[in-house]
């Protein structure tokens, strides 16, 4: 038997990214981004999106929404006059939510995970 570790009383759990990125595991789902519509919101292609359904979306939330049956990632903009799903890419038009759309917020994007191997020099 050697010396007892002087650190024994000071051991803490190592950092767990799940606790940071997905504190509500029961309502958290993951999506894979494959577009450039949100590139200015730091969502590159290949990014993993952490989506928490238990969060309530507010003005400015990044959300996964279903528009006419298709999944999209956008900023949610709500003000007195209108409600829209805004892209973070000047080349892409916003989706203004009018009666012509069926749209539903699927969940709120609470985290964006990117591995550096998936990053390419940005070509905007």
């Amino acid at each position: 038997m050697g010396f007892p570790s002087p650190a024994a009383d000071y051991i803490e759990d190592r950092i767990d990214l799940n606790e940071v990125l997905a504190p509500n595991p029961l309502s958290t789902f993951f999506f894979r981004n494959d577009g450039v519509n949100m590139v200015n919101a730091f969502i590159p292609p290949k990014a993993l999106l952490v989506v928490d359904r238990s969060q309530t979306p507010v003005n400015g939330s990044i959300v996964v929404a279903v528009v006419n049956g298709e999944f999209v990632v956008r900023y949610l903009v709500i003000n007195e006059i209108k409600c829209l799903l805004a892209a973070a890419n000047p080349k892409v038009a916003d989706i203004v939510l009018t009666g012509d759309f069926t749209a539903e917020i699927w969940g709120v994007v609470t985290g964006i995970v990117t591995q550096t191997k998936d990053l390419k020099p940005c070509t905007l």
Binding site: F29, D34, G35
Partner: peptide
Amino acid sequence: RYSTNIDELVIIKD
């Protein structure tokens, strides 16, 4: 297996 397998997630092509 959308909710359990990282290689089978929904891909958002928007």
